[in-house]
Design a binder for these strands. Structure first.
Lengths: 135, 135
DNA sequence: ATGTATGCAAAACATTTGCACCTGG
DNA sequence: CCAGGTGCAAATGTTTTGCATACAT
């Protein structure tokens, strides 16, 4: 139940917010652009502005309900932050996004930052890949 | 000598291209935005359009002379591709960019992609950090 | 000469914002 | 009721493009 989620992060439970959450939860594609969320809503017969989609997604991000990723291509994608941390692998042929998590890499990143006298605040690891048995 | 570099990648040796290369080589900051390159040129008394800077940088990228990175913030930065592969650490307080390379991480990335049946074409690893002894 | 490059201004995008109106608590 | 949310259109910031002119080879 999401109404509680919204209240917990100090956001009013409004129709646009519930609708956007619903799209993110029910989409079979996990990583969506703002435009994609917007179109999904229009297709579902819902009325709301693109600006609102952006505002809602940005608020959700600040609230930790959603994660924003800037993969190559200039358009951000959003995904529900309902899983533990993970990184991404993007297939350059199909656009498929695969999530993975490797504790050893996480540890190494931490060690490297520390070696330089820093603490990791955030990080982004994306592998752009191609199927192995390719022409 | 860069004229050769340009010819080698099939680009005519023109004044704007040489100027942009020069800025990238002589700048004390390694990672520059297109805008920064443009301003550096104007400051140096050189005349050329921002559009040309973008075109030249994009051509250099295709030619492998320059690498483009999309750190957080919506503005791409460019750096001379005169070093071996490395990843980046961006200090969120000072904007400092530190380069690092860890063979173990590289290997793990390769192994992970392989496990899923992919070959890595490219990858991006950026650590957003903060100084350790911070308030 | 002639195929490329460049400059400028305009277009194209993704995203944000101002403001009048609406709505949830 | 009233702070906060929304829609729309306009603004923003970055990057790309069309086209006439200029240049490298």
């Amino acid at each position: 139940m999401e109404e509680r989620d919204l209240r917990n992060v100090g956001l009013k439970v409004t129709s646009p917010r519930l609708k956007v959450l619903k799209i993110l939860e029910e989409s079979d594609v996990r990583h969506l652009t703002a435009e994609a969320v917007y179109r999904a809503l229009l297709d579902a017969g819902e009325e709301l502005g693109l600006a609102t989609v952006y505002r809602v997604l940005t608020q959700f991000e600040s609230a930790g309900l959603v994660a924003r990723h800037n993969f190559e291509g200039g358009t951000a994608v959003f995904e529900l932050a309902d899983r533990t941390h993970h990184d991404h692998m993007v297939c350059m042929e199909t656009g498929t996004v695969i999530e993975f998590c490797d504790e050893r890499i996480e540890q190494l990143q931490h060690d490297i930052a520390e070696k330089y006298g820093y603490i990791i605040e955030d990080h982004s690891l994306v592998l752009y890949v191609r199927p192995k048995q390719d022409t």
